[in-house]
């Protein structure tokens, strides 16, 4: 198991956001976490990245307990997240944003970092065209591409994607999911959080359903796509 979360409980003040969430992600797969707005999907990802304090439970990565490891050190260990919405640095250029993705890379890795720029530019040719543009002035889709590309610049073993399709036009959504599959095909394990359940399930191998802080279903993604109750609740019938 690359990532194992067990019995995770997280609070915002007195409000409990996660209540005993357990899930795991296997090396090489795409796993997804679907659920309604406010179910705790983003909180789960933030907790994996170390932005939220854990009240109870544990997070293990590559076999090591990282429950209390500071967030910035988890990036060095191989976890990187493309955050929800406009999670880019709006005042920086595209290149500086990508450079932030490579913030933890060592000088001796310079050659591999150059290779990662090439990888990101071949996945997102648009970013290459716009590399000197101020990120905040780009379209929503371009910003999303930048957020994903920036996360790849840390050369992660586990890529966390928070709502990559949010606010994008349908054509762009399809394109983003194609790219997600391609990134996974290149060997990066992905945990995907989505409200767009159809797209998420169709690229994922396994899926978890989160409802008000609880995991209510865990199954192969293909099975959930065929499940009537899931279809009714999340896929619009």
């Amino acid at each position: 198991m690359l990532l194992e979360i067990s019995e995770l409980s997280v609070f915002y003040g007195k409000i409990q956001a996660l209540d005993g969430v357990s899930l795991d992600v296997e090396e090489g797969e795409i796993a997804c976490l679907i659920g309604a707005n406010g179910a705790g999907k983003s909180t789960t990802l933030k907790t994996i990245s170390g932005l939220r304090k854990v009240a109870h439970g544990a997070v293990r990565f590559k076999g090591a307990d990282i429950t209390h490891v500071p967030g910035h050190r988890r990036v060095t260990m191989g976890i990187c997240q493309a955050p929800e919405g406009r999670g880019i640095f709006p005042g920086m250029t595209v290149m500086d944003n990508l450079g932030m993705g490579a913030y933890t890379r060592k000088k001796r890795d310079a050659e591999r970092v150059t290779g990662d720029y090439e990888r990101v530019f071949s996945l997102f040719p648009r970013l290459k065209e716009r590399r000197k543009q101020i990120a905040g002035t780009m379209s929503g889709g371009e910003q999303q591409m930048l957020a994903i590309g920036r996360a790849l610049m840390s050369d992660p073993d586990l890529l966390l994607l928070d709502e990559p399709s949010m606010g994008l036009a349908p054509m762009l959504v399809t394109q983003i999911f194609e790219i997600i599959k391609e990134i996974n095909g290149q060997g990066t394990t992905i945990l995907l959080v989505e409200q767009n359940a159809i797209q998420a399930l169709s690229v994922s191998r396994r899926a978890y359903v989160l409802e008000s802080g609880h995991i209510t279903r865990r199954a192969l993604a293909a099975d959930l796509l065929d499940d009537d109750s899931i279809r009714a609740a999340y896929l619009g019938g």
Partner: peptide, 24 residues
């Protein structure tokens, strides 16, 4: 510089800076 970029990143969005591995 890289450290200067870290300062700008924290100024623009501190929690995203943590996601990039910046020690706030």
């Amino acid at each position: 510089t890289r450290l200067g970029r870290g300062i700008r990143a924290v100024a623009q969005d501190a929690s995203t800076a943590v996601l990039m591995g910046v020690n706030i």
